[in-house]
Computed example of a mutant assay.
Amino acid sequence: MTLQLRHETAADIAAIEAVTIAAFADNEHTSHNEQLIVRTLRAANELTLSIVAEEQGHIVGHVAVSPVTIVDSDGHKAPGWYGLGPISVLPSRQGQGIGSRLMEHALSELRALGGAGCVVLGEPAYYMRFGFQSYAGLLLPGVPSEYFMARALEGPIPKGVVTYSDAFNIA
């Protein structure tokens, strides 16, 4: 079976929601609102990238990327930074490299867009495989630092406080 990675179309929206709900259904470290985050990012025109993994006409995975704001102690903003997530793969297809392919594809597209870097909130053992790591000077308030990681695509890792889109505050 051939896995195709491509940008979402309007016809994919219901399948993306279903995959996202299924992917996080048994995750104990979530509010189970990931599909609402994606929906709200889309409605606010804040989805920089929305990439699906499709196999034989069925969506089996999805990754969303949206802009983040990083402000240092002097009030300066670091341009060109994005947040990756949520990333979702159907439970029956997890552990087969689909998430890795989505991750690598998203980072490649961000680099092609001229992105400076990407942040992610998640399991360190997974995301460190893709070059993400925690940085003492880069903070997401209210989150244990080891679960908040960054990867530069060009230039240094900025210092400052990271703010995601308001879509991530949806209940």
Rank of each mutant, 00 (worst) to 15 (best):
Q4N: 05
Q4Y: 09
R6W: 11
H7L: 12
A11M: 07
A15G: 13
A15Q: 13
A15F: 09
I16G: 06
A18S: 11
V19M: 03
I21P: 00
A23G: 13
E28S: 06
T30I: 02
T30A: 10
T30R: 00
H32K: 13
N33M: 15
L36W: 04
L36Q: 15
V38F: 07
V38P: 01
V38H: 11
R42A: 06
A44R: 14
A44N: 15
L49N: 02
S50R: 06
A53W: 14
E55P: 00
G61V: 13
A64N: 04
A64Y: 09
S66N: 00
S66I: 01
T69S: 14
S73Y: 09
S73N: 08
G75N: 03
K77P: 01
K77T: 15
G83A: 14
L84W: 10
G85T: 11
G85N: 08
P86W: 10
I87C: 06
I87R: 00
P91S: 02
R93S: 07
Q94Y: 05
G95R: 10
Q96L: 14
G97C: 07
I98G: 09
S100V: 01
R101G: 00
M103A: 06
E104K: 15
H105G: 01
L113M: 14
G114K: 12
A116T: 07
C118T: 07
V119G: 09
V120Y: 11
A125P: 00
M128Q: 15
M128T: 15
R129N: 11
F130Q: 03
G131V: 11
G131H: 10
Q133V: 01
S134N: 12
L138V: 04
G142Y: 03
G142L: 09
G142K: 07
E146L: 01
Y147S: 13
M149N: 10
M149Q: 15
E154M: 03
G155W: 07
P156G: 04
P158Q: 03
P158T: 11
K159Q: 10
K159C: 13
G160E: 10
T163V: 03
Y164A: 08
D166S: 10
D166V: 01
A167C: 04
F168D: 04
N169H: 12
